[in-house]
Structures are given as C-alpha cells and as structure tokens.
C-alpha cells in the first residue's frame, strides 16, 4: 500500500465482500437445498434458509441413493472416486518422477525424442481424441474397471516438467558426493532425490488429487455398469432422471458430498495447493 486512503480501503473491502458473496452463492443455495424436503421445490422460489431434513437426506443418499434411477448409493460412488483420484495422483507422480530422473541424470541416444513424446501429451487433451481413445480402452478390455479409469489419465507432461525443473536445481556436488561414496543411480534416486523433492511431491499430489477427483468425461464414457460410477460423473446421471421428477434436495446433497473432499484438501492444505498450482504452470 502506497498511501493511506480510508475510502479506497473501504471500497476494497466492499468489492471483496461482494465478490465472496457471488462466489459463495451457488454453494450456499446447494447447502440450504440439501436440508429441505422434496416438496419444497415444487413451486415458488428456492428457499434461502435451512430446513430440517438435512440428516435424513444425507443419510439416504449415502446409504441408498435414488433407487428408481438405478444409481448406486453416493457412499459407494465416493469410494470409486477416491480410488480413481488416488490412483491417478500416485500413478502420475510415480511415472513422471522416474522419467524426469532419466531425462536429467542420464545421457542416452534418442533422449530428446523421449522428451518430445512426453511433451506431446500436453497437446492432446482427452477431449480431442475421445472416440479413438475409447476404442483402444475397449479393445484392451479395460472398460468398466479401475485400471481403465486410471491408467489412460496418468501420463503427464506437466508433472514430468515440474520434476525436471526440481532436479535441474539440485547441486551437482550432491551427485558427485554420492558417486564417490559408491552409490548407484537408484540408490541416489531413493535416498537423496526423493527426500529432497518431498514438498514438491506433496504439492503436486494436492493438485493431482483434485484433478483426479473432478474427472468427468472419461468416467462418464467408460463406466457402463452402475457399480463403477464416480460421484462427479454420477451426479449428471441423476439430474437427467430428475428432469421428470426434480428431487433437488437429493441432488444438492450429492453435489455437496461430491465437492467436499477436494474442498477440504484446498482449505487445509492451502499452502501446498498454491505452491502446486503455481509450480505446475512454470
């Protein structure tokens, strides 16, 4: 702040409070709706204050779901989402940290070719090659399975570049000292590089968990059986059914549960989250 201008400070607070309200409005309305009874949404306007049906709505969605729509309980879909999100985060980190290690610490023929192949993933988002990718996964018999949900999404140029940057800043003296002490490449990787990259791994994990949990198109396509539905993709199937019989209280309870895990991660690991977000874009 350059000079003290009370009016400008007041204006800043005003703008921010309005901004926070706008940003929070959809979630507030969802929270309120999730505590109401179904018949509160038949006419009039959406209620803005809490009702008394919260516990029963959440308990019903977690345990049973809307049976008429053929949806599994939300609890089960959240387990699927969790497996997918953790699989994607661990998988991405594992395969990108080893490839970054290979690219930075070794010289071998076609090294740049390997680098460009990894770079290409950045230019081919799943949305632009949906049909042929679906066909590959179908041919491999991976439809409707956890590997099918996870493996096609774990190749990541951003994560590889992040670790490449981290490794490039590691002092060469460390490597030399390790070699003089007789450590081979894998020992150096395990005992020196991994511990030194701990915070970067944690930051990346936070970002990748959110990315994995929030996947939509891919699970929607390849989960054909309801036992494999993830919660973010499942919620859309609920609204399609709800067109005829809008059970907004249940849909909003599901929405709240679908956003809760990544939300908690962002709030409680804010520092790592910001670090991860800024670093992956370098």
């Amino acid at each position: 702040m350059v000079e003290n201008r009370p009016f400008l400070n007041f204006l800043a607070h005003l703008v921010l409070i309005l901004g926070v309200v706008v940003v929070a409005l959809p979630v507030w309305i969802a929270l309120v709706a999730s505590t109401r009874a179904s018949n509160d949404f038949l006419q009039g306007v959406v209620p803005m204050w809490f009702g008394t049906h919260g516990p029963e709505n959440y308990a019903r969605m977690l345990g049973q779901g809307i049976s008429t729509s053929g949806m599994p309980p939300v609890g089960w879909m959240m387990v699927n989402s969790l497996i997918m999100a953790l699989g994607i985060s661990f998988g991405k980190i594992a395969i990108s940290i080893t490839s970054a290690f290979a690219i930075v610490y070794f010289r071998f023929p076609f090294r740049m070719v390997a680098f460009w192949i990894i770079f290409a993933t950045l230019m081919l988002p799943v949305e632009v090659r949906i049909v042929p990718t679906f066909k590959v996964v179908a041919d491999l018999g991976m439809l409707n399975s956890y590997p099918g949900l996870i493996i096609p999404l774990i190749a990541s140029a951003t994560a590889t570049f992040l670790f490449r940057q981290v490794f490039l800043t590691m002092p060469d003296e460390l490597t030399e000292a390790a070699r003089i002490d007789g450590a081979g490449p894998m020992k150096f990787f395990r005992d020196i590089l991994l511990p030194l990259s701990r915070t970067n791994i944690a930051a990346l994990f936070v970002i990748m968990f959110i990315y994995g949990w929030n996947q939509y198109l891919w699970p929607l396509l390849i989960t054909t059986g309801s036992d494999m539905y993830t919660v973010v993709a499942g919620i859309k199937r609920m609204t399609t059914v709800a067109d005829t019989d809008p059970q907004w209280n249940y849909i909003m309870a599901t929405a709240v549960m679908a956003m809760l895990p990544p939300l908690l991660v962002v709030i409680f690991m804010q520092r790592l989250f910001v670090k991860g977000l800024v670093e992956t874009e370098k």
Partner: peptide, 22 residues
C-alpha cells in the same frame, strides 16, 4: 484469499449443476 480460492476445488460438472439450480 481463502474465501476466494476454493471454487477451484469444485468440479466443472458440479459447478454446472449448482448454477442450473440457481
């Protein structure tokens, strides 16, 4: 900052459903 960064955690699909309701 904390009050403004959390929408990042909400999946675009869920955001769509929330705004549909509004």
């Amino acid at each position: 900052t904390t009050l403004l960064i959390w929408p990042y955690a909400v999946a675009p699909a869920v955001a769509g459903v929330l705004w549909w309701f509004i």
